[in-house]
């Protein structure tokens, strides 16, 4: 009983409970049909949200006002870069992935450069950057119809015993992110900056470097995500990243990370991503129209954040 009580105080438990509830509601509707397949599909789709969600989580943890709005444009451009570099050939998969990673990391670095050089809030910096990236992508990716190499497409869809391999790798990655957050100097510095940037600076944290690393990390994860999405959905697309603006922020907040910064939660990102994907699956299973689906998704996000409540932001 005591262990259950400690479990209930964990902020991430609610997102998993929500995901479970939505899943149960859906299989109750279908009469148990497709219960396993739904989990497989949810895992493979949640992966993409988790990867960018972790990047966004580190950024948001830096404190109020820190958010990466350039992720959708970043994902779109990286997907095009990856497909073009791979050029449909299996031999170029690794090079393509590295190119997407480098493209994303460069965007992240530029984001921080704007924040630092223009001394503007990150929201405006990432917003102006995303305007420009979007145009570069439209111009660069125009009429791009390169299919991903067969080996890469198979890899992103590869399953072992009904569990997507990509999901397993992403679990390993999130464990690494959790260790980096809680046990490494980098993560502790991010948390310290989020709690009180001035105190962190006085304590000798290299604030500028940590913020630079965090924005670059978020950008790099966006880049990788773009490449993987292009593999999974068989091709790059300007709009491929659009839904990840809301999704990346929503999973961070629903997952129990404090929007005021200084408090992060990695498992919650997984729970929240599964919750969002399963929610969409449920609404699709119920056969609601696109309008109702959007309406309910929005209402549920507002409802969840209202129920979770905000903490007093320290400004």
């Amino acid at each position: 009983m005591a262990s259950l009580k400690t479990l209930l105080t964990k902020p991430w438990i609610w997102s998993f409970a929500g995901a479970l509830l939505v899943w149960l509601a859906t299989i109750a509707f279908t009469g148990g049909y497709g219960a396993g397949g739904m989990v497989t599909a949810a895992l493979s789709l949640a992966v993409f949200t988790v990867i960018v969600g972790v990047g966004q989580m580190f950024v948001i943890t830096l404190g109020p006002g820190n958010v990466d709005l350039s992720l959708p444009a970043n994902i779109g451009l990286a997907s095009a870069v990856a497909m073009k570099v791979m050029g449909g050939s299996d031999a170029m998969i690794v090079v393509g992935l590295l190119a997407a990673l480098a493209c994303g990391a460069a965007i992240g670095a530029i984001n921080y450069l704007l924040i630092w050089a223009l001394r503007i809030p990150p929201i405006i910096a990432t917003l102006s950057a995303s305007f420009i990236i979007q145009s570069v992508d439209i111009s660069y990716g125009r009429g791009l119809q390169i299919k991903p190499p067969p080996g890469f497409a198979d890899f992103t869809n590869w399953q072992v015993l009904g569990i997507p391999v990509l999901a397993m790798l992403t679990v390993l990655f999130t464990i690494g992110a959790a260790i980096a957050l809680q046990r490494m100097i980098y993560g502790r510095s991010v948390l310290a900056i989020g709690q009180n940037i001035r105190a962190a600076w006085l304590a000798g944290v290299n604030v500028g470097r940590i913020r630079f690393l965090t924005y670059t990390l978020s950008g790099a994860l966006g880049g990788i995500d773009g490449a993987l999405l292009a593999g999974y959905f068989r091709g790059a697309n300007v709009d491929i990243g659009n839904e990840y603006l809301l999704a990346s922020i929503a999973v961070v907040v629903i997952g129990g990370t404090s929007v005021a910064g200084g408090k992060a939660n990695v498992p919650g990102v997984w729970g929240a991503a599964l919750f969002l994907v399963l929610l969409l699956t449920m609404l699709n299973t119920f056969g609601v129209s696109a309008g109702v689906r959007l309406l309910l998704t929005g209402l549920i996000i507002v409802g969840v954040i209202t129920a979770a409540g905000g903490e007093k932001a320290v400004r």
Partner: peptide
């Protein structure tokens, strides 16, 4: 509730879009 307006309004953006589609498919 001292909520972050970014998240609330991001959620609302889906609500308005959904309503818009319902009004004018």
């Amino acid at each position: 509730r001292n909520l972050p307006s970014i998240v609330v309004t991001l959620g609302m953006s889906f609500v308005w879009q959904g309503l818009a589609i319902l009004v004018l498919p």
